[in-house]
């Protein structure tokens, strides 16, 4: 739960930082795009059944590490902020947190040959 809330806050930071520090347009656009995406994935992953969505933040976070150099930021604050957020999002997205309930094998079960929900229903 807390890991998802921290990543939500980091996504919100990406959205508001360009206005506070007067980012150039490439850096500002990047924050305004990556921010809402990170917030969305983090909020959806709060629920146990959709916890797996936390991992969708990995590619976004990795992009944040590369973006300052690919897009050529000229603002040091923007470079430090994006790369720092990238590292932190990567760390907190890797935290699985508690899964207290069973979901018949979860989403992976839809591609497995003999998943938990089929085994359980065969026992009945």
């Amino acid at each position: 739960m807390w890991a998802r809330l921290i990543n939500t806050a980091l996504g919100l930071w990406l959205m508001i930082a360009p206005g506070i520090f007067q980012y150039s347009s490439a850096a500002a656009d990047n924050g305004h795009i990556a921010g809402p995406v990170i917030v969305t994935f983090s909020v959806v992953a709060i629920w146990e059944a959709t916890r797996v969505v936390r991992k969708w933040n990995y590619p976004v976070a990795i992009w944040l590490l590369a973006a300052p150099w690919i897009l050529g930021y000229d603002n040091t604050i923007a470079i430090v902020s994006d790369m720092g957020v990238g590292v932190l999002v990567l760390i907190f997205a890797s935290v699985k947190g508690k899964i207290e309930k069973n979901y018949g094998g979860g989403w992976a079960s839809l591609w497995q040959k003999n998943p938990e929900h089929i085994q359980k229903s065969d026992q009945n």
Partner: peptide, 12 residues
């Protein structure tokens, strides 16, 4: 966005 997580367990 807040609706997605709680709705998806039923979908699953």
């Amino acid at each position: 966005i807040a609706m997605i997580g709680p709705a998806m367990d039923e979908m699953l």
